[in-house]
């Protein structure tokens, strides 16, 4: 029988994969990162503090796996070109094409952010972690999270013509 830890982890797989995609931008690598994260999470589940958010704990494991990968492959040269963009906007026919275009533009603006800004954007604005939780995932002071996030949001707002 599975327990709530497993059930919650499985329920969070889409979120984990989305975060992985935002880090590495490749579907195949994102899948690997999610799998490594799950392996490490099950192996270390006794160390999860159930009074905290499971997603934040898993994001941290995933991010570390990504850093490990990046370290191993520094000599290879990184090939980042295919954006496996989440298919966020599901449309019925041509209903509200303009809204779809706006969202595509927003995706592009987010994709264009520096990696350190993009990850805080994902953690706070998409996965709705608090500034402090995001700081713990990344391992930086809360002030750093806030300044990266503010810059990221102003940059996206500027690209979208929000004044």
């Amino acid at each position: 029988m599975r327990d709530s830890f497993s059930d919650e982890l499985i329920a969070l797989l889409p979120n984990l994969r989305r975060f992985a995609l935002s880090l590495c931008r490749r579907g195949d690598l994102a899948d690997d990162l999610v799998q490594i994260t799950a392996e490490r999470a099950f192996a270390a589940r006794d160390r999860f503090d159930p009074t905290t958010r499971l997603d934040a704990w898993l994001f941290r494991i995933l991010r570390n796996a990504w850093i490990d990968h990046a370290r191993r492959t520094t000599t290879q040269g990184v090939t980042v070109d295919i954006v496996d963009a989440p298919d966020a906007a599901v449309v019925d026919g041509v209903r509200d094409m303009e809204a779809v275009l706006t969202l595509r533009k927003a995706e592009a603006a987010i994709a264009a952010l520096p990696e350190d800004q993009r990850e805080v954007m994902m953690l706070v604005c998409v996965d709705e972690l608090s500034y402090r939780e995001a700081a713990e995932v990344i391992g930086v002071p809360i002030g750093t999270v806030m300044s990266r996030l503010a810059r990221a949001r102003l940059a996206v707002a500027a690209k979208m013509g929000i004044k």
Binding site: R18, L21, R104, E107
Partner: peptide, 13 residues
């Protein structure tokens, strides 16, 4: 910007 980002990426593939 927050609302827009959530809307654009809120639904995980």
């Amino acid at each position: 910007s927050r609302a827009l980002v959530k809307q654009a990426l809120g639904v995980a593939p």
